[in-house]
Amino acid sequence: MNILKKLKQIRHKEPGIREFCIQTIRFKKFLENARALLDLFEDGREKALGEYIFDRHYVVTLIDSVIERLGMMVYDGCVLVPESGEKLYTTYDTHKRTARNLIDFSGIVKKAVSPGDVTPETSKTVDQEYQLLSEALQWFNGKDAPLDSTVMAFMKQIFLKVIQGHGSSEVIKNRSLFENSCGKIPDMGIYLIDLWKDQLALPEGNSSINDFNSIPLNHLLMDAGGKDLKAHPNPDWIAAVGEYQLSLNSLRADFQFHLVTLATGDADADFIFIFADDAAILDTLLPPGFHTENTGYGQFAWNLGISEKTIEDSLMIIGRNLFN
């Protein structure tokens, strides 16, 4: 092996790249935790509809699970954006206290009855368990709850912090990281990296994209002029891939875009998640069916519990719109 090739290989193992991959995997975990929280809310909501028979233990466990899962999300957030860590934990602790109060004080008759009063009829028109559940649901994501006091509101905050943390400074850092590690300008302007192999697309002359056995990537680029793999003068993208997953990030300082997807065929785990700092872009980009959330900073969009095929079709549409 000649010296030049050896040097390229050394560069490919650079810790910066490795850290990038791990943080990409960490972000996916972050999304998983968020989804699990949404599932918990949904579970509680379903039980509250009135038909179910459950005990107080169920509700207490639900509250505990929410706190635990929220803690996991907060933790991931701290790993992704360390500078926000302290604030995140402070808020988290508030929620912990709320949860503790809910559990300790729910169901206790709050009004003192003075001796002279006629004892009012036990106002247990609502069963204790249902009462507690409804209070918990309020705290989770009640529409009538005071602003910013719900878990959902906190989740949004965390998301924002994470996304903001991956704003322009991070992007610039990444760009130079990839430029330095990869000798040649990548095809299609997309730096490609295998999440588990720590290597950048080796520009060996032929279609490097096909070297990566990534189903989501293939679908993303299927309609995107993929046959015409010309070297792109200004690489704008980094795609970290696995067989069933894809994490696409913009390298432009003026355009923040993230797309994360998992398409294994297991609807409980699969998802597509997108963020764009320009809401208008998403409107033109997305096929129907996505949940969206607008914030001052940009727009989130996601789709959960969908089939492989739906994900693949969505990716084709998005890719077509994004790269043309």
Partner: peptide, 30 residues
């Protein structure tokens, strides 16, 4: 009653140690 999380600090935590502790917990959980 609106709670501004930023004002809660009636007690102090040392964040670094907190983070370390939470890291341990996360690891043990996994």
């Amino acid at each position: 009653m609106s709670i501004n999380p930023e004002n809660i600090a009636s007690y102090d935590t040392d964040y670094n140690f907190r983070f370390r502790y939470e890291t341990l917990r996360s690891l043990l959980n996994k």
